[in-house]
């Protein structure tokens, strides 16, 4: 397919010009939503879904199913799968039964649970490891290494205190524990609840900053698409 494409399309040739036109048309189709949720917008969204499905499935089939399943089995076929029998058993017990899910209410779908259990087991283990080493430990270390010593620069010291207070406060916002009846438990509850309220302010500031970043990125994307329509497209047209 690529050899055929390369023989027809040279870099910077007609295919690229056609591509720019197609990209401009698709951009306009999507932006028609600003006027009305029309047939053209749905056409563009359907095309996006179809393209994404086709691309993802082709990459998965080529990279995983062909390279890791079909190619080894095909190479081992003359030996009657003497080296790939474990892969065959794995496919029979964990992979093919997943397709039984397409037949709803079938008792055989219980078989498909084996594959899902395998996937969930791996997912949970990777999630725990990732959360521990990728989020929890680095964030704790970063919070604990903040300088709160009064000897430091006054402004840095204040910022350090704010970071520690804000981090703990934001964390305490998600505390949903009923207080006990003992006096110290009630005092503890009042302290953590108040601190959590302060933390909610820090969370809102974080959300505001995140929203601003999001708006900035989206506006940049919009400006980029409009620039493409106003600048790149005429440049291609009048080249």
């Amino acid at each position: 397919m690529d050899a055929l494409f390369d023989s027809i399309c040279s870099p910077g040739g007609a295919c690229d010009v056609l591509g720019v036109w197609l990209a401009a048309l698709l951009t306009i189709l999507v932006l028609t939503y600003l006027i009305h949720d029309s047939f053209l917008f749905r056409l563009a969204s359907s095309l996006l879904v179809g393209t994404a499905i086709g691309f993802a499935s082709a990459v998965v089939v080529h990279r995983v199913l062909w390279d890791l399943v079909v190619a080894p089995l095909w190479a081992d076929l003359p030996n009657w799968f003497s080296n790939t029998w474990a892969l065959l058993i794995f496919l029979v017990f964990f992979c093919f039964p997943l397709w039984l899910r397409l037949a709803p209410n079938s008792r055989a779908t219980t078989w498909s649970n084996l594959g899902l259990a395998y996937l969930f087991g791996i997912g949970a283990a990777l999630a725990i490891g990732g959360a521990l080493s990728g989020i929890l430990a680095p964030q704790l270390v970063a919070t604990m290494s903040v300088s709160v010593s009064p000897q430091a620069n006054g402004w840095d010291w204040l910022n350090g205190i704010l970071i520690v207070v804000g981090t703990l406060g934001a964390f305490l916002t998600f505390r949903f524990i009923q207080p006990g009846n003992r006096p110290w438990q009630r005092v503890y509850d009042v302290i953590t609840r108040t601190w959590g309220t302060v933390g909610r302010g820090f969370i809102m500031v974080a959300f505001g900053a995140l929203l601003a970043g999001l708006i900035f990125a989206r506006v940049s994307a919009l400006v980029g698409q409009l620039y493409f329509l106003i600048h790149d497209l005429p440049a291609t047209l009048f080249k």
Binding site: A127, I128, G130, A131, L132, I135, L136, Q139, L140, A142, T143, N159, L162, I163, V164, V165, G166, T167, L168, G169, A170, F171, L172, T173, F174, G199, G201, F202, I203, M204, V205, A206, F207, G208, A209, L210
Partner: peptide, 20 residues
């Protein structure tokens, strides 16, 4: 670098504990 970082860090710590 200060209040938003603190808020995001608290959320991340809570999310990490939730994931675990």
């Amino acid at each position: 670098n200060v209040p938003a970082l603190a808020g995001a860090r608290g959320i991340l710590l809570g999310a990490a504990l939730g994931i675990i």
